[in-house]
Simulated assay, not measured.
Amino acid sequence: MTWTETEYRAYLEEERRLYAWVLCRYGDRTPQEARAAALGRYPYEPAGAPLRGLIFHDEAWHWAMLTLHGEGYWHRHPELADPPSAYENEARGG
């Protein structure tokens, strides 16, 4: 996918926000811990970087669940395979 720089940065920030929200809400992380983790999970990739934005192929919910519960979380916790309505509401802007 091709984004303008403005679109990329906005999408990156929104995914960081949602990732941090999940870590706080479902992982008992402090906002500061969650934000630091989000910055690590979603680093800025400069324009022209190979595979820029590839992380966006899965939503923040999935990446946060991997962080909290590990690979295969969807088998051990099938109730977490799909984001709950609280996440969907947050993704729509709360």
Results as ranks from 00 to 15, higher is better:
R16L: 01
P31K: 10
P46E: 14
H62G: 03
Y87N: 02
N89Y: 00
G40N: 14
D82N: 01
P83D: 00
H57E: 04
V22S: 04
T4A: 03
N89H: 05
E90M: 07
H57T: 04
E7Y: 05
E15P: 02
R41D: 04
E71D: 15
G48I: 08
R25W: 00
A81G: 09
Y8P: 13
T67S: 08
Y8Q: 13
F56T: 07
L39F: 14
A36I: 10
D82A: 00
W61L: 02
A86E: 14
P43W: 06
Y19D: 06
E33N: 09
G53Q: 05
Q32V: 15
Q32I: 12
H69Y: 14
L68D: 01
E33K: 14
L66N: 08
E90P: 01
A49G: 03
L39M: 13
R16A: 06
D28C: 11
S85E: 11
L54A: 14
C24M: 15
L12T: 01
R52G: 06
Y42P: 07
A34P: 12
H69K: 15
R76V: 00
V22T: 14
Y11E: 14
A38C: 09
P50E: 03
M1E: 08
E33Y: 03
T4D: 04
E88T: 14
L68N: 01
E45S: 15
G94V: 11
W74F: 08
R25F: 01
H77K: 02
L18Y: 06
R76D: 04
C24K: 11
Y19W: 05
Y42G: 11
E14D: 15
A60Q: 12
N89C: 00
G70C: 03
P50L: 09
L54N: 11
W21Q: 06
A81F: 00
R41A: 15
E33P: 05
W74S: 01
W3A: 02
L54Y: 10
W3R: 02
Y87T: 05
G40W: 05
I55M: 07
H69N: 09
W74H: 04
P78M: 06
E7M: 08
M65S: 05
A37H: 11
E15V: 06
A10N: 07
E33V: 11
P83A: 11
A38S: 13
E14H: 13
A10E: 04
R17Y: 11
A20N: 00
F56D: 08
R52D: 08
L18G: 07
G53W: 00
M65A: 03
W21D: 02
R76H: 08
G27C: 10
W63T: 10
G94T: 10
G48C: 06
V22M: 07
W63N: 07
G94Q: 11
D58S: 13
L51I: 01
R52I: 06
A60H: 10
T2C: 00
R76Q: 06
R16D: 01
A49T: 07
P46C: 07
A47F: 11
H77F: 10
L51P: 00
Y8C: 13
L18S: 07
L80E: 00
H57V: 02
M1N: 09
L68Q: 01
R16P: 05
L39T: 14
N89L: 08
R29F: 03
M65H: 04
A37D: 12
A49Q: 08
G40K: 13
E45F: 00
T67L: 06
E5F: 13
G94K: 12
L66G: 10
A64F: 10
